[in-house]
């Protein structure tokens, strides 16, 4: 237990400490709250925060729901089918976003094949493009987690329950769901945190305004290299805090639901 904890606490703690220091100490030295003041004074920051939250919730819910369905469909299939479905997992998010543009942008492959697309999915105001890209990437990831949990003896236990007279619905609620619940919750939290903090995808398929929080931080450093660093560090720290609080709340909620 100790080595893992020590590694994480030391490295991660160091990183957070470093970020705090960057946000409070500009290049010349001396503590100053300028970065934090600039951050809160900027209306774009609040817009970015709300937008990030909206996109995160949507992407996580859609991915989790789809993953359960897909895992159920795929668990009776062999290695090849599973491998094909898992193909997006090793593809970095940035590349998936590029693929999305290749396929779904006006003049993209889907447009050329179908004549025209009904929805505007790239750079749309609602951030649907972002949700779609993350769903494409995260559903296979969640499916991987779910299938790993389902693989160890689930079929046998379902059959045992069926023999004991449990209906399909009962089997689902009492055998399948408890097995997949833990990896689903954990995986969903990971997905949510990831979507909240990532910036390559919104940079490619997201709307010009508002940016997501991480994109906001990145753009802050592009504008004014010196002062921007402090603002970016402050923005990233707040995002991190929000993600951690969200996760803690989600874990607490999951525990009360299952009556642990």
């Amino acid at each position: 237990m100790a080595p893992a904890m020590a590694t994480v606490v030391l490295l991660f703690g160091g990183a957070i400490a470093g970020a705090v220091r960057t946000s409070l100490v500009p290049l010349g030295g001396g503590v100053s709250l300028d970065s934090w003041r600039a951050l809160f004074a900027d209306p774009a920051f609040l817009d970015a925060a709300l937008f990030s939250l909206r996109v995160t919730v949507l992407a996580t819910v859609v991915s989790a729901a789809a993953a359960v369905g897909v895992a159920g469909l795929l668990r009776s299939h062999g290695t090849l089918v599973r491998a094909l479905a898992a193909l997006p997992v090793p593809v970095p998010h940035l590349l998936v976003a590029v693929l999305a543009v290749l396929w779904l942008a006006p003049g993209g492959l889907a447009d050329r094949a179908l004549g025209a697309l009904p929805l505007s999915l790239i750079r749309d105001d609602a951030g649907l493009g972002i949700v779609l890209v993350y769903a494409y990437k995260e559903v296979p990831f969640l499916v991987l987690l779910l299938l790993a949990a389902m693989g160890s003896g689930l079929r046998e236990r379902e059959e045992a329950a069926a023999v004991l007279g449990a209906s399909a619905r009962q089997r689902l609620a009492w055998v399948v769901w408890p097995t997949i619940r833990a990896p689903l919750v954990v995986g969903s939290i990971v997905v949510a945190a990831f979507v909240l903090g990532a910036f390559e995808v919104p940079l490619v398929v997201g709307p010009n305004y508002p940016p997501t929080l991480a994109a906001y931080a990145y753009e802050a450093t592009q504008g004014d290299v010196l002062a921007g660093e402090g603002v970016a560090a402050a923005a990233l720290l707040l995002t991190a805090l929000a993600a951690i609080a969200l996760a803690a709340a989600a874990v607490r909620l999951a525990r009360t639901v299952e009556g642990d």
């Binding site: 543009v101 942008a105 006006p106 003049g107 750079r123 105001d125 940079l203 709307p207 010009n208």
Partner: peptide, 16 residues
């Protein structure tokens, strides 16, 4: 309402 985010994107729009 929607502008390309980079010169490269504009190039793609022009090319297509």
């Amino acid at each position: 309402e929607v502008l390309p985010k980079s010169e490269a994107e504009l190039n793609e729009l022009f090319a297509n």
